[in-house]
Nucleic acid binder design. Sequence first.
DNA 1: TCCTTCTATGCAACTCGTTGCATAGACAAG
DNA 2: CTTGTCTATGCAACGAGTTGCATAGAAGGA
Lengths: 188, 188
Amino acid sequence: MALDHAILVSLLERPGSGYELARRFERSIGYFWTATHQQIYRVLGRMVADGLLLVREVEQQGRPDKKEYSVTGPGRAALAAWLHKPIEPESLRHDLAVKIRGAAFDDPAALIDEVERHRQTHRDRLAHYLAGELRDFTGPEAPAPQDAGQELQHVVLRGGIAYERMTIAWLDDVLATLHRLDTAGPGT
Amino acid sequence: MALDHAILVSLLERPGSGYELARRFERSIGYFWTATHQQIYRVLGRMVADGLLLVREVEQQGRPDKKEYSVTGPGRAALAAWLHKPIEPESLRHDLAVKIRGAAFDDPAALIDEVERHRQTHRDRLAHYLAGELRDFTGPEAPAPQDAGQELQHVVLRGGIAYERMTIAWLDDVLATLHRLDTAGPGT
DNA sequence: TCCTTCTATGCAACTCGTTGCATAGACAAG
DNA sequence: CTTGTCTATGCAACGAGTTGCATAGAAGGA
């Protein structure tokens, strides 16, 4: 049900269409939650049926019409209820860690390229986050009088930055370990 | 399909029953992959049907009989094939981050207890990982001549430790932000 | 004119994962 | 001898999420 709440938060921050939501889930919200457009459209339909959202047809020039969604009173109440209900701390799901342990039963050196590719992806994400932070929060162009919403968006972004930095450092550790095992000889 | 591979790795490290696997998924493997026993039993059944695993009935004293699973040649080959195929870097799924952004539309101070509870969970996990590291890798009782499998298990554990440390530091940041918003006044 | 790209929405089928329930052997405590 | 706990396995139903496919308006380029 967490996608519902992510959609409520995103639409409270700014109403928008399913397509726009899907793009936000590739950007800011996507730092900590992902969803495909199919998933989003289906959930939007259900939430409208449940009275949590309102739809409005919007005609556009130069592009197809869209449906703009916004949060209703009951939608806001549903979000508030969820906010006050404790949730379980997350558990990790990390494919790459499974691969690393699995490498013991194959050639560890064969994983080096894969790990380097992942590290590059995380470097790219970090650069993207840092650019966003400069643009929206810490740069000279950033809006000065930060309200609560901005402060909270910023602290979540700092979490994303910390996560990417930690991951890059760990992947460096992994690479060093794989190189060490490689030069030490596969027969060890 | 990643649960399949996590099971293959775990069974290569040591054959065992569905019940034992379920407990490993609460411990070492569970650092980076979770699964319920129902999920595990279902996948085990499918993997046996596909010829990736072998079952063996084992009689036990003092407890019910069990089925011990081990990896076949095709199972090992399936794991090797997966290891050589690139995978997409993970995307985060973090409920708590959604809550933090959502707090802008509710009372941010009401989240403080929840965040502190999460921080405590992560502190506990960190302590658990550190104890495991001391026991299995860095302590005086740890086996000295580390083979590749041990090195790889250790680097994955170091990843878990780094993740928990990063998360605790971030939650401290979140708490400081929530306190700041609280004393600055909710009307800002 | 056709092809591609971007915006925009959606169905159908499938797999993955969770929740609730059920069974059963062995042992220990009351 | 009943109750509770731990070991051990499993079904049924549901919800969450992915993949593939399909449609369509608008713009720009070959």
